[in-house]
Amino acid sequence: MSKLIIPQGYKMPLSNYELQRAIELVKAQFQSSICSSLNLHRASAPLFVDGATGLNDDLNGVERAVSFDIPDVGTHGQVVHSLAKWKRLALKRYEVPMGAGLYTDMNAIRRDEEVDNLHSVYVDQWDWEKAIDRNDRTMEYLKDTVQAIVDCIWQTARCLRIAFPAITFSPSNAVHYITTQELEDLYPTFTAKEREHAICKEYGTVFVMQIGGLLNSGVKHDGRAPDYDDWTLNGDILMWNPVLEQSFELSSMGIRVDETALDKQLSLAGCDDRRTLPFHSMLLNGDLPQSMGGGIGQSRLCMLLLGACHIGEVQASLWDEATHKGCEEAGIVLL
């Protein structure tokens, strides 16, 4: 069933040809900026991994991976959901020095995604991971990195407005930091999503911290797998979307679990069976580098900076018939 939202009077400010050029500019400019800012270098990324290794991102633990047999290899491949765990293993394999990192141009399929204006079964993002010192596992280091990423977004938006004067969106690079518990205390009667809308409408750019554990109310703000982010040192970068008039998530990121955090979170999540998987065993034994990382949505960033109301305007995917019909009637071109 279509969940399409078309704002009253909406019109994409660029022609179809200009839109493709603008998407190219956003991706090239942001990629260059973040690599320079965070000291990242490109690494080739897998489209699929061995399902028996535990390397695939389990997201909220209920999403089904696209799986297929590989007879000549003798195993089943899983199309990745994201590369959260693979990247940390890659830091070790590629002998990435402390203070440097890698990024990948990641493409994924999330077959169980509920598609709407913001969500597609096709995922494209910059997945990045950086080797850090154990002493850098602090809130201050996390916030400094968030600010660096937001500054890259601000710079990309500035370049876009210069190249395409019809684009007027200017994001705020003044980040408001708030924990999920502080957010619940501030808006106790709101749902998690309503809280995000309210705080973003007030501040423009927000980093919502400490996602994954239970709040005082006994519920989670949002789900997080227990085996990559440290739930006390992670968060989402959100910006206010003036076209859709709601908060807009651009990145999920954080400082990764160390041995102690992984041990605790596996128990809290009821996932103790993962301890014997190759990735988890290496982590619990201290064989993987300390790191931080995240994913930054490519189509999400293009959508926000270009003023698109539907993610299908900036990426090619599959949509239900009602969405196609509604967009056609509104003059919205889905790629």
Rank of each mutant, 00 (worst) to 15 (best):
R158L: 00
R158M: 01
R158I: 00
C159G: 04
C159N: 10
C159Y: 05
C159S: 13
C159D: 05
C159E: 07
L160Q: 09
L160E: 09
L160S: 09
L160W: 07
L160R: 08
L160K: 06
R161E: 03
R161Y: 05
R161W: 05
I162P: 00
I162E: 12
I162T: 11
I162H: 08
A163P: 03
A163I: 05
A163E: 14
A163Q: 12
F164Y: 15
F164W: 10
F164R: 10
F164P: 11
F164H: 11
F164A: 15
F164S: 14
P165T: 09
P165V: 08
P165I: 08
P165L: 08
P165K: 07
P165S: 14
P165Y: 04
I167M: 13
I167Q: 11
I167R: 07
I167S: 09
I167P: 07
T168F: 03
F169Q: 03
F169E: 02
F169P: 01
F169W: 09
F169K: 03
S170Y: 09
P171T: 06
P171C: 08
P171F: 02
P171Q: 07
S172R: 06
S172Q: 06
S172D: 08
N173S: 15
N173L: 03
N173T: 04
N173I: 03
A174H: 11
A174I: 05
A174P: 00
A174S: 12
V175S: 00
V175T: 05
H176Q: 09
H176R: 11
H176Y: 15
H176F: 14
H176K: 13
H176P: 05
H176A: 04
Y177R: 02
Y177A: 06
Y177W: 14
Y177S: 04
I178P: 04
I178A: 08
I178L: 09
I178C: 12
T179M: 07
T179I: 06
T179N: 05
T180R: 04
Q181S: 15
Q181L: 12
Q181G: 13
E182W: 02
E182G: 11
L183K: 05
L183S: 10
L183T: 04
L183Y: 05
E184D: 15
E184A: 13
E184S: 11
E184M: 13
E184F: 14
D185F: 02
D185R: 02
D185L: 05
D185T: 06
D185S: 08
L186S: 14
L186V: 03
L186K: 14
L186F: 06
Y187F: 15
P188D: 14
P188Y: 12
T189G: 07
T189A: 14
T189W: 06
F190W: 04
T191A: 10
T191Q: 10
T191L: 11
T191D: 13
A192W: 05
A192S: 15
K193N: 14
K193P: 01
K193A: 15
K193M: 12
K193S: 15
K193L: 13
K193Q: 13
E194Q: 15
E194Y: 08
E194A: 15
E194V: 06
R195K: 12
R195L: 00
R195F: 00
E196P: 00
E196T: 01
E196C: 01
E196Y: 00
E196W: 01
E196Q: 03
H197R: 07
H197W: 10
A198L: 03
A198D: 03
A198T: 02
A198P: 01
A198S: 07
A198F: 02
I199L: 03
I199Q: 01
I199V: 15
